[in-house]
Design a protein around this nucleic acid. Structure first.
Lengths: 132, 132
DNA sequence: CTCCATCGTCTACATGCGTAATCGACTACG
DNA sequence: CGTAGTCGATTACGCATGTAGACGATGGAG
């Protein structure tokens, strides 16, 4: 993939923990109404619809979510890709804690026994790809 | 007054961004006085000594830092290990963004070109160790 | 013994975040 | 048409965070 002429996937502000839950719902399926987002997240997090509306507003303000009118209400869609968000967050962690090097992160995960056999196999396969 | 001995390897509360900078200074060298911590971090972050004092107090309250009297002042030392902190933070990221699986994180780092040849070699070596 | 430089603590205050009630606009039903 | 329900917007409020000044204790210089 090369650079597109236009990329709306720029994260203008931090997405907080609560907001992230909303983003996950939208990344899973979109566009959604506020009501539908609530159906996804209100239960697990014990939120009210009002809370979801607030979070959606803030995400729109942060340009992380865009709206599309649908009669009297809005349909919400992510404006940044999950991949971009995940990449930025990962990079932040690696920068902050591992001096920007990924290998130490990996070493850490390995040593803290957070890697399953499946993980290891998967990573091996990825390494093979990277080397070719 | 007599407090029971507590486990120093448990993070009781979240360490925030600003606090983290202070922790890094203490992980690098300790014990340090507030003044010395300030010499390490005030410049880069544009803080005043008062700010460092506040952060140290909050870290003490969070039991992330311990004090040792030295005349009229205190010497501050980390009460949690960097390794533990880094592990917890890494786990949080992996849980939040990758469903608790480390392999996808790795795949992401690989795909976003954040892995250097050195990283790859290092990780290969680690994998060999894990498999043996 | 006095005074001053420092020390940690207390207090402060703006902003951000989590959570939510309320309000004014609008639609759909009767 | 009017009324009830629903929508987004506005407002609220307590706690966390980033940043720092003010204050009282105190140890060391003279």
């Amino acid at each position: 993939m090369s650079e597109s002429p236009e990329r709306p996937d720029r994260i203008s502000a931090e997405i907080t923990g609560a907001e992230h839950a909303v983003m996950e719902a939208l990344w899973q399926r979109s566009p959604l109404t506020a009501q539908e987002v609530c159906e996804e997240v209100c239960g697990p997090r014990g939120w009210s619809l009002a809370t979801v509306k607030t979070l959606l507003s803030r995400l729109v303000a942060k340009q992380a979510v865009e709206t599309e009118p649908d009669g009297k209400r809005f349909l919400y869609s992510p404006r940044i890709e999950r991949t971009a968000y995940v990449g930025a967050e990962s990079r932040r962690l690696v920068d902050r804690l591992f001096g920007g090097r990924a290998a130490p992160l990996f070493a850490h995960l390995a040593q803290s026994e957070q890697l399953t056999q499946d993980d290891i196999a998967e990573i091996e396969a990825l390494l093979k790809e990277l080397k070719s």
